[in-house]
């Protein structure tokens, strides 16, 4: 990034190549469509380029990158909300998870009593992630896929350490409650005990 700051085009290309998939992996779970995630990722790289002169190597570059990604995604969702588009990505508050029966129907309609295959499990997990609030989702994705510490997540999302800890605690509790019926594979979703 220091070479990018010094206007090295090759260094910027290297940076895009190295981080684009990681960035997309997070962004595609923050917005409803893949195309929108790509647009946002490009916006993030554009902002990185424009802000390159202000970069200070005090924190890890990935923390700085995901700070920008968090802001870009949040702004996109705000402008989307202003346009009153249908929000298919999930709740906006930090409340509890949606009804599991509804999740099950969304996942695969009338799912048979059998072990879910990999694609179906992926869909169930995707819906569970989407059911979390944007902030819970972001914090969880950074922890899971970027391996960020609480401190780094707090820096990226402008939260205190305690707030980050609480946010992740609620996120993981919600995820557990949503996925509980699916974790005992072979049991029909919604047919088990309600958490």
């Amino acid at each position: 990034m220091l070479q990018v700051r010094d206007d090295s085009a090759a260094a910027f290309e290297e940076l895009v190549t190295r981080y684009q998939s990681r960035l997309l992996a997070v962004l595609q779970h923050l917005v409803p469509r893949r195309e929108q995630a790509e647009d946002l990722a490009q916006e993030v790289f554009l902002r990185v380029y424009r802000a390159r002169k202000r970069y200070e190597p005090q924190a890890k570059f990935s923390t700085w990158l995901f700070t920008i990604a968090h802001n870009v995604a949040r702004n996109a969702r705000r402008s989307q909300a202003r346009r009153h588009e249908i929000n298919v990505a999930g709740a906006d508050d930090d409340g509890g998870p949606p009804a599991i029966d509804q999740m099950a129907l969304e996942a695969s309609g009338l799912m048979p009593t059998r072990i879910l295959d990999k694609a179906e499990r992926a869909e169930v997990v995707r819906l569970a992630i989407d059911a979390l609030s944007e902030r819970q989702r972001m914090a969880m994705l950074l922890a899971k896929f970027e391996g960020m510490s609480y401190l780094e997540i707090g820096q990226a999302m402008d939260l205190s350490l305690q707030a980050t800890k609480s946010l992740l605690s609620r996120a993981r509790e919600n995820l557990r409650l949503i996925l509980a019926p699916y974790m005992d594979e072979g049991e029909p979703p919604g047919g088990g005990s309600t958490p």
């Binding site: 779970h29 992926a122 997990v125």
Partner: peptide, 10 residues
């Protein structure tokens, strides 16, 4: 289970 999420490269 989050590992089940598909990872698509750019």
């Amino acid at each position: 289970l989050l590992d089940e999420l598909p990872t698509e490269n750019a």
